[in-house]
Design a binder for these strands. Structure first.
Lengths: 175, 175
DNA sequence: AAATTACGTCAATAGTACTGACATAATTCC
DNA sequence: GGAATTATGTCAGTACTATTGACGTAATTT
């Protein structure tokens, strides 16, 4: 059972006494696990995975972004994106349009089908968030927004602000 | 570029007007991505992945849990756990102890080495959380805790309460 | 004694990711 | 105009995490 030179078992639980915030670390894990489980079930019907969801989401959020921009947001490599993007194009969820200024670029846009799927995937997630805000008595979602934004690496926060969240009205300055 | 029967590109961004909370959906994605990137870098030095981290975390949080209990918390299959657990045992981060009441069971405990690694992995995550609470001016972490807990499926919230978070003092009533 | 439970393991497969290399077309630089 | 660079696509090989299905063993329960 225990190999000869094995260390002795520690029988006490690790706690926050070391100044480490295990409570929130663990909650974040559970919350994200369940947050992603909603769309996962829908995606399975299409033979898609989480990667397809992420691509679909950002193409809907920033229609016309290029492949390079998408790679930058997702923080994955071109090769990882290739298969997923090809499947979404083949199934008519996303279309490529040749860049107007630079014809090497491929601008990515959702089709009506892709828009519908993106909404269907987001719906249960949004419902979960709304319920959580109500259940937890958090009247101001701004608190949660600020916290989550502060959890993001400062140098990457620029990515978030590309799409005007919801309060600010208009700045889609893309062309 | 566009295949013959392809749908037409939609050029407007998806927004919150559909009653969907895209702002928080997206923030949650970015926040979790960066939250996990800290330990990922440390794990790479050991040839470990995220799966090893999760196992190590829960064995440290609930020393003496059985394989079946671990599977239930992680929501993965026995076969998926097998390789990861074996590696952690072979590298002397975790030891198995035959169950006292039921000798079929394997109680899992961290070694001193496993405890140290778990702490090292949690440290940057805790630092990020503390910084986020300060940056966002969220004085009461209770708000964040309540929100995150409310994001978890109700029927799975029991898993969270096994370890007394941090406010309540002592109730490790395991033996 | 038979059925069930807890665990381990073997085989095959899938999804997502990686690195490295190479090709093509278009743009920019000199 | 020719060379270098850029944007994209693709091929080959590999790794990690996960899956289902099947089988074996020891221990407990019925």
């Amino acid at each position: 059972m225990t190999s000869p030179a094995a260390g002795k078992p520690i029988r006490t639980a690790i706690t926050d006494e070391d100044g480490i915030d295990f409570a929130i670390i663990e909650l974040f894990f559970f919350a994200y696990r369940d947050f992603t489980s909603d769309p996962d079930q829908i995606l399975a019907d299409y033979g898609f995975g989480r990667a397809h969801h992420r691509v679909l989401h950002f193409v809907n959020r920033r229609p016309g972004l290029t492949v390079a921009e998408l790679l930058d947001v997702l923080k994955i490599t071109k090769q990882s994106l290739a298969r997923v993007l090809k499947q979404l194009i083949d199934t008519d969820h996303i279309v490529q349009v040749q860049g107007p200024r630079d014809r090497r670029q491929r601008e990515l846009y959702p089709t009506a089908k892709g828009r519908a799927l993106a909404l269907a995937l987001a719906r249960p997630q949004s419902r979960r968030i709304r319920a959580a805000l109500e259940d937890s008595g958090t009247t101001e979602r701004a608190t949660i927004e600020r916290f989550l934004e502060a959890m993001v690496n400062p140098e990457l926060r620029a990515q978030i602000d590309i799409v005007p969240a919801q309060t600010s009205g208009k700045n889609h300055g893309d062309h």
